[in-house]
Computed example of a mutant assay.
Amino acid sequence: MTSQDLGRLLGDVSSHFERPHDIVVSDQYTRDQKIQLLQHWEHDLQLLMVASEESMTGATPGQTAEQMKAVCDALSALGGLERPSGPGKVG
Rank of each mutant, 00 (worst) to 15 (best):
C72R: 14
V13E: 04
V50P: 06
K34M: 02
R31T: 12
H21F: 14
E66A: 13
V24S: 05
S55F: 14
S14F: 01
R83P: 04
G62T: 02
F17P: 06
R19H: 13
L38K: 00
S3E: 15
S3H: 15
T64Y: 00
T60G: 10
L9N: 01
V71I: 03
T57M: 03
R19W: 11
S55W: 14
L75R: 01
M56I: 01
Q33T: 14
I23Q: 01
T30G: 04
L45H: 05
D44G: 06
G79N: 07
D5M: 02
K34C: 06
S14G: 06
I23P: 02
R83V: 11
A77E: 09
T60P: 05
P20R: 03
S55C: 13
V90A: 13
H21D: 10
R31H: 14
Q36W: 03
T60N: 08
A77C: 11
R8Y: 13
Y29A: 03
L47V: 12
Q28W: 07
V50M: 00
W41H: 07
A77W: 01
G11Y: 08
L81E: 11
V50I: 10
L6Q: 03
K34D: 05
L81F: 05
S85A: 12
Q67S: 12
D44A: 11
P61L: 04
A74S: 12
A59D: 12
S85M: 13
Q39I: 15
P84S: 10
T30N: 10
C72K: 15
S3I: 09
Q67Y: 11
G62P: 04
L6F: 00
E82H: 14
D27M: 07
L10R: 08
V24I: 11
L75K: 04
E54N: 14
G79T: 11
S85D: 12
E42W: 08
P20G: 00
V50H: 03
F17K: 04
G80T: 13
Q4F: 15
R31P: 03
A65P: 01
K34S: 05
T30L: 09
G11F: 10
G80D: 06
I23N: 06
P61W: 01
A59L: 09
E53T: 00
A59M: 07
T64C: 06
I23M: 12
V25S: 00
P84M: 07
L38C: 02
L78P: 06
L10K: 08
H40Y: 03
S14W: 01
A70L: 05
L9S: 02
Y29D: 00
L75A: 08
S15I: 11
L38E: 02
